[in-house]
């Protein structure tokens, strides 16, 4: 039980802190959310390449993989795995392959939502 609490505490704190970085950027730099998302994904990819993000993901699990830098880290992992398997072709196919599940899900559910729902006033 104690272990479980500790596990979720790590997820909560790391995930929360990554969001706090985003919030500071949002409030201090006037970057729009789209720019922050781009920044985070690219950062995750490079942090993966230099080996930092893997340690963070081992430590915090979903706390590191659910925020968008985790998506970038996933791209990095995907491209390396593809290169190991298919050589140079992997440079092209790895990233998109790794992103496939998330992107396809977003397209599918986004499309379904557009069928079912209408935009509402705030």
């Amino acid at each position: 039980m104690k272990e479980l609490v500790l596990e979720y505490l790590k997820v909560f704190v790391v995930g929360g802190l990554i969001c706090v970085i985003g919030q500071i950027l949002l409030d201090k730099t006037k970057l729009t959310s789209a720019r922050i998302l781009v920044l985070f994904v690219v950062a995750g990819c490079f942090l993966g390449a230099i080996g930092i993000y893997e340690k963070l993901a081992d430590f915090a699990g979903a706390g590191a993989t659910v925020p968008l830098p985790g998506f970038g880290y996933n791209l990095y992992k995907g491209v390396c795995a593809e290169i190991d398997q298919n050589g140079f072709l992997g440079v092209f196919t790895g990233g998109i392959k790794a992103a496939a599940a998330g992107v396809a899900a977003a397209i599918i559910f986004g499309f379904l939502a557009s069928l079912l729902f209408n935009a509402k006033e705030k």
Binding site: G16, L25, F117, A119
Partner: peptide, 29 residues
């Protein structure tokens, strides 16, 4: 509404990515 409250707290997780795809899909129907 969650985004208005939480800001980056709901933008940065992958659910925010889904939001940023779904919102224009619904709006530009």
């Amino acid at each position: 509404k969650l985004g208005n409250f939480a800001g980056a707290g709901s933008i940065v997780p992958i659910t925010g990515f889904a939001n940023s795809v779904t919102a224009p899909a619904v709006e530009f129907k």
